[in-house]
Design a protein around this nucleic acid. Structure first.
Lengths: 229, 229
DNA sequence: CGTGGCCTTGATAAAGTTCAAGAGCCGTGG
DNA sequence: CCACGGCTCTTGAACTTTATCAAGGCCACG
């Protein structure tokens, strides 16, 4: 497929001229990864960053005992691995393909010279990093100040939001991965889902379908003004 | 004091021309805050960002029950509150002066036009945000994957590093604030400090002086390969 | 010399993790 | 077509870590 066409669909490159897209196209490299393949490891040297073209990528940390904390799951159109492009040189976390995935790779030095001659690109990247910072701010708040039911409630509400505000949700990741995203383990997640079911906040088919029964209740759980019995 | 002189000492503005410094000087506003005074609150509209000139500022989240998590403590020369300049419009967290503090304030629109015409400034800001992202990455790792002794050990080693790698440390904040920075409460911090003393990792005068007795041990605690007895 | 801030210590409770076992599902291959 | 193995998820019981609640010590400052 035509690279320039694909570049147009990437939000980071919105508002750039055709000439800019051509320059970007000239430095990009395509990469493919199988499910579970490692894209980079923490502390690896990062000499460029990636944009997801298809598939999904998780960026995560691992503890000494093997517990995983997912920092972010990236889908189509989203860039990741930019930190070492601008500061330091090594990746701050691990990245792995969650399924068959295709990426664009932009080498550091070429990209930096583009950004220097291109204020819109710089502004887009600043906006991107700022949004990322805002997300992390919320993640820290969740991990430090909320308990698992609150984090789960917030996640379910978020899922509902991106799925047309419908009360009928479909989990897009395994429960093990959701646990890792929420900073807990599958056993705890399982227990809390069942408590939320018996207390009629949600209804679950036991698999990947969940129906929200009490949206206000979930919001109260998410904000910490209410707790499970 | 001369504003242009002060601007030169701010890392974010390193490598800029004299003309740039003059432009910056023309948009900056000075602000002063007393100890504990609020600088901005979460969800406030942010129409500019700040740089610490003297004093210290904490940026933090608060839970519904009143528990505080410090995200960052900013000292002289460091910018904060940039996120709403580039993405969204409201501040993601609260900011408060920890002591008598003087700040520079840069209004959003004027700063954005400066950055657009000034690649070095854009690059400096990108580097700044990227470092911030890296820090948050570590904070998330600490909160999710390490226990309090590990976080405290990492903090002590960090303190030692910025204090000339000396084993003689001086805490620069109260223990209550340190607890909030580590994602715990004063009681827990106190107990763990005393365990680290009885197990001869450190020696403490009970106040703000700590001596590192077993640096390797602290490193093992910080990485999770060892735990307190 | 007394009062308030800051820190420590103890007893208790809550939340989450660990370990172990088992249920349900699905694809493979005999 | 059914049995098997592997995978994901759930459930239970014991345990660990941290928070909560309450009390008291220490010190500086008025």
């Amino acid at each position: 497929m035509d690279i320039a066409k694909q570049l147009e669909t990437i939000p980071l490159f919105q508002g750039l001229s055709l000439a800019n897209h051509k320059q970007l196209a000239s430095i990009v490299a395509r990469k493919s990864y199988k499910k579970n393949q490692v894209i980079f490891a923490e502390a690896d040297d990062g000499n460029g960053f990636y944009v997801v073209i298809s598939g999904r990528v998780k960026v995560f940390k691992i503890s000494h005992e093997g517990k995983e904390q997912i920092l972010h799951i990236f889908s189509s159109g989203e860039p990741f691995g930019e930190v070492p492009v601008f500061a330091g040189e090594h990746f701050p976390a691990h990245a792995q393909a969650m399924e068959e995935t295709k990426l664009f790779f932009f080498p550091r030095t070429a990209f930096i010279s583009l950004i220097k001659s291109n204020p819109s690109l710089a502004m887009n990247m600043l906006a991107m990093l700022s949004r990322r910072l805002r997300r992390f701010t919320n993640l820290v708040e969740d991990l430090s100040l909320k308990e698992v039911p609150g984090r789960l409630s917030a996640y379910l509400l978020y899922l509902s939001e991106i799925q047309n505000h419908s009360p009928h949700l479909t989990l897009d990741i395994s429960k093990a991965q959701l646990a890792s995203l929420l900073g807990t383990i599958p056993e705890t997640l399982s227990r809390i889902l069942s408590r939320m079911s018996t207390e009629d906040f949600i209804e679950s088919d036991g698999h990947r379908t969940i129906r929200i029964l009490d949206r206000d209740g979930l919001e109260e759980l998410a904000s910490g003004e209410r707790r499970l019995a």
